[in-house]
């Protein structure tokens, strides 16, 4: 992180000096969420947050952590099944938004004869195939190139815990995200976790007590914005309580 964070308000023009300087000058500039391009060469912020840049990918985006989840392609999400039609499931990612479709055949080993039976309100860990602006979002649970599930599919048991969108991003970012509470807990107990970019974490710790302990620890780390030492304390407290 730079020593001074550049705070952006909607409508602020990004000066050329703040844009990333690519190592490979031929690489086109990529604009992430919160930035828009006004031809010929003006880059304007549309969301309040801090400017982040990546020189390697020649990318710039606005870092923010509030608001509603907006689907984008290749995001991993936890969807809730609402209804099942002839060949798709209708799922929701966030409340009060149009449903997304998950074809019956986009599960591992699914054929016309052996399609998965998922009742309403069951959870699915899925990847967003496409999120066009003008048509419904489509989900899948298989990798199209291999036909394998790669960890995606129905989530059985466990509980859902809402977290902030930024926390979900951090959890999926691995080391860069700076969340070590799960690694710390995993040293002493076994559990399964699935992180959805739509701001939910699914936890199955074997028993309700363990599941709640893990989920609450994640939510506390998110709410308090804890660093490494604070997270270690949370881990100790959770392990002591078991």
């Amino acid at each position: 992180m730079a020593s001074t964070t550049q705070v952006l308000l909607p409508g602020d023009t990004i000066p050329t000096s703040a844009l990333p300087t690519p190592n490979n000058p031929k690489k086109p500039l990529t604009l992430g969420p919160g930035l828009r391009h006004i031809p010929p060469s003006t880059i304007v912020a549309s969301i309040a947050g801090s400017l982040s840049t990546d020189n390697k990918k020649n990318a710039a985006w606005v870092e923010y952590n509030s608001g509603r989840y907006t689907p984008s392609a290749n995001d991993l999400v936890i969807a809730t099944i609402l209804t099942s039609t002839a060949d798709t499931f209708n799922c929701t990612l966030t409340p009060h938004t149009p449903t997304t479709s998950l074809p019956h055949l986009s599960f591992e080993n699914a054929t016309r004869k052996t399609r998965p039976q998922l009742p309403p309100h069951s959870l699915v860990y899925a990847r967003i195939v496409s999120a066009p602006r003008d048509s419904p979002v489509e989900l899948t649970c298989v990798d199209p190139s291999t036909g394998k599930s790669e960890g995606l599919g129905p989530l059985k048991g466990g509980m859902l815990f809402p977290v902030s969108l930024g926390m979900a991003r951090r959890l999926l970012a691995g080391k860069k995200g700076g969340v070590m509470v799960l690694e710390g807990l995993a040293e002493k107990m076994g559990f399964e976790v699935a992180v959805g970019r739509n701001g939910v974490v699914w936890v199955d710790g074997g028993s309700v007590k363990n599941t709640l302990g893990i989920g609450r620890a994640l939510q506390e780390v998110d709410r308090e914005g804890l660093g490494e030492r604070g997270q270690r304390k949370v881990v100790e407290r959770v392990l002591r309580g078991l």
């Binding site: 992180m1 964070t5 705070v7 309040a48 947050g49 801090s50 870092e63 923010y64 952590n65 509030s66 930024g166 951090r170 700076g178 780390v221 914005g225 804890l226 660093g227 490494e228 030492r229 604070g230």
Partner: peptide, 11 residues
């Protein structure tokens, strides 16, 4: 922004 990013500098 500070509130959102305090985890980066937090202990």
């Amino acid at each position: 922004v500070e509130g959102e990013q305090r985890w980066k500098s937090g202990t």
